[in-house]
Design a protein around this nucleic acid. Sequence first.
DNA 1: TTATTCATGTAATTTGTTACATGATTCT
DNA 2: AGAATCATGTAACAAATTACATGAATAA
Lengths: 178, 178
Amino acid sequence: MNNNFTVDYIILGCLSINPMSGYDIKRLISISTSLFYNASYGSIYPTLKKMEEAGLVEAEEAVENGRFKKIYALTDEGRKEFMAWLEEPPHPIVIKNDMLLRLFFYRQLPREKVLAITAAHIEQLKAFKLELEEIESAEGGWADKYQYNTLRWGKDFYDFQIGWYEKLLHELENETIK
Amino acid sequence: MNNNFTVDYIILGCLSINPMSGYDIKRLISISTSLFYNASYGSIYPTLKKMEEAGLVEAEEAVENGRFKKIYALTDEGRKEFMAWLEEPPHPIVIKNDMLLRLFFYRQLPREKVLAITAAHIEQLKAFKLELEEIESAEGGWADKYQYNTLRWGKDFYDFQIGWYEKLLHELENETIK
DNA sequence: TTATTCATGTAATTTGTTACATGATTCT
DNA sequence: AGAATCATGTAACAAATTACATGAATAA
């Protein structure tokens, strides 16, 4: 395969847990990895097709609950490819943080607007964290400790961000009182 | 302009601080925002050209130290556009975290390999943090508190990550002793 | 009966990187 | 003299999103 930092491996990974459809993959990603790695139908379905042609996955057309489904499973070749990827050292994290980019230029914004945006951002982070916790409690049986830890990372990261912006906000608030 | 989550606004932002060349923009991004927002020459130069045609920036060709340069500056229109962007609420953070994606599947890897990869990852994070601190001490005069805070976020985020993976490592190490 | 969810898929577009080409200047 | 840095730029490619199209089944 080409690049090893693409959507390909998360799909192989999902199938390494269980054979499933493209729709299932999308759902699994949404409730588990979307915070640190997301994918859309527009990348999942074509990638499954490409991988079937490459012999990494096999499709079985089935009818479940009167619904048409294409259940994909790893081939031996596919599992080999996935395991080889899994042993590699990870790529460095890539972030697009719009709030921080704006912060870099906030000197040009009136103080009260900076305070308002920052406060609103904190509220949004708290809302996102709540959403995550709802997913967590809805999804009872988190198979293994590794999967659980990725979820914990999500919560810890929100706590880090919330704490960081709250500290920033307090510093900005206290500054011009002097 | 089209989307407000593109390279366009970081370029306008750099020019809002000072008129500068594409090369200067690339350098400024590298030492200041690359951790949370990066861009390559292949996006910077064509974007500058596009923005000049749109009347957001103006270029002045100059010779500095015997070197040809195109110094771009914001037009009134460009500054208006930038200030409008600056007041908007930020988009949520977008992350591609390869290490966490792999962690999600690490049950399928032998314990000792997980420990080795995690330990190596911690070392890499420490090395990146050192690099960042070198940039910081090299760059003496960080204009304003906002810019300084984005740099501080970088260090704090590395500390968060290092701490998080160290905790994970200890938990994994202590587990099977029982 | 109508809206929502389940389910698959494609085409157009967006966005950006990588790699290359070019050439002047400065450091070693 | 040769390597590294300064400086601009383009073409090919990669990767993925968005928006749309389709249709069946189920919930309100």
